[in-house]
Simulated scan of single mutants.
Amino acid sequence: MLDNYVTASTTRVKSDKNVPRSRFDELKHRAEKKLNSSSSFNAKANLNGVVVEFWGNSQHQYDFWRLNWNEAKANSTTDARIISAFGVTHESLFFNTEYYGQCKSWALGMAAAVLETSRNTHSIHGACVDVDGKGVIIVAPTGTGKTTQAFKLMEVPSGRIVGDDWVYIDHREGRRRGHLVGRQPEKSLYMRTESQLNKDWLRKIFDESKCENVVTSKSKCEFTQGPTGCKLTGRNCVFDDGFEWCYYAFGNSRALVPREKLFGLDKVADEARIRLLVLLRRDDTSPPEVKLDADDAIQVLRKGEYMIRPGAGPKEMWGRMGYEPWYNPYLLHLDHARQEEFFRTMISRFRVKCLLLNTGIESVEATHKRIMSALQTC
């Protein structure tokens, strides 16, 4: 039986990181009153040395939290809490949403705030893979193939996954060691289940994982075509083929998969020495590959062109182009100048090679070959 939970909100809810202190205290009091009057759950997680505490009354969020993070000692001092995000208190407050993706991102964002102050740490929203001792970071908007290319690197005999969503890079450590090291604190990958569309073998793994917002009824599928067809595959609808759920019927359904469950424990790494930064875009006109210096990379990151995918934002915007800097959008304080400084230092001072690849005009394999070729010269 599928271990699936459907949240009331299946995407991120509107958030405000600049709530006045008085209003914040009022909301926090309401939340604490509710949690104290009902069954609630507490858990502490260790995010690269930062202790983030969860306190809530959602069994679903609690289960995902425990599965996703390394557990911190019960008597460890809390650096940040999930009931809110305000200034130096590092707290996050959620009302009436059980969607784990937002909870996870805010936990990472609060840890990032502490790490940036204490260790001059750069927090990147991207995937990280180690290939034969060389770390590759892939930064890309949703829908351009970030996860696909990360998977291709993992399939290389010497490829090992560090993380698919968030990378912490301690620049203070980098200056001391003479090179940058990428790390991430998550034990599990919060995967879009639509990735099973092109990787049938993932169905068994997702079947054995905790899932969120997987469609279990044909009537709720967004991609039906005619009585029995599927717009995505051009084949029969999986519900008509006898399956009780479909992993790609909704663009934002998720599975929380332990990293070692994908390819085995020997394909997992906790850190990687960063040698290559890959930026991905998808369009019909740009060249397949452009080598970037620091200034060029900053321009691409700053422009932030991306296609709005199903499940992200209002439905009427799906498939249209949007513009938002590719810097980490989940930081508590969105300081683009600071992010640019980190990227510039990475490329200029630490000699991390940077490529901009267009996945819209080449096959997955062709893009993968370009990444592997670049690694050989790093």
Rank of each mutant, 00 (worst) to 15 (best):
F41S: 04
A43G: 12
K44H: 01
K44C: 05
N46L: 10
N46R: 01
L47P: 00
L47F: 09
G49A: 01
V50K: 07
V51C: 11
V52E: 01
V52H: 04
G56A: 02
S58N: 06
Y62R: 09
D63A: 13
D63H: 10
W65A: 01
R66D: 02
L67Q: 14
L67D: 12
W69I: 04
W69E: 04
W69H: 14
N70M: 12
E71W: 11
E71N: 12
A72R: 05
T77Q: 14
D79P: 12
D79A: 06
D79G: 04
R81K: 15
I82A: 08
I82E: 00
I83Y: 13
I83A: 06
T89K: 15
H90T: 08
S92I: 09
S92H: 08
S92G: 12
L93I: 13
L93W: 09
F95L: 11
N96F: 09
N96D: 13
N96H: 13
T97H: 02
T97V: 08
E98S: 14
Y100D: 05
Y100E: 00
Q102G: 14
C103W: 11
K104E: 12
S105K: 05
A107T: 00
G109S: 01
A112K: 04
S118A: 15
R119W: 06
N120M: 10
N120Y: 10
T121Y: 03
T121M: 10
I124S: 00
H125L: 04
H125M: 05
G126D: 02
A127F: 09
A127C: 06
V131K: 07
V131T: 07
D132H: 15
G133H: 07
I137K: 05
I137H: 03
I138P: 00
I138F: 01
V139R: 06
V139D: 06
V139S: 13
A140R: 05
P141W: 09
P141C: 05
P141R: 05
G143P: 11
G145E: 04
K146L: 12
T147Q: 02
T148E: 15
F151H: 08
F151D: 11
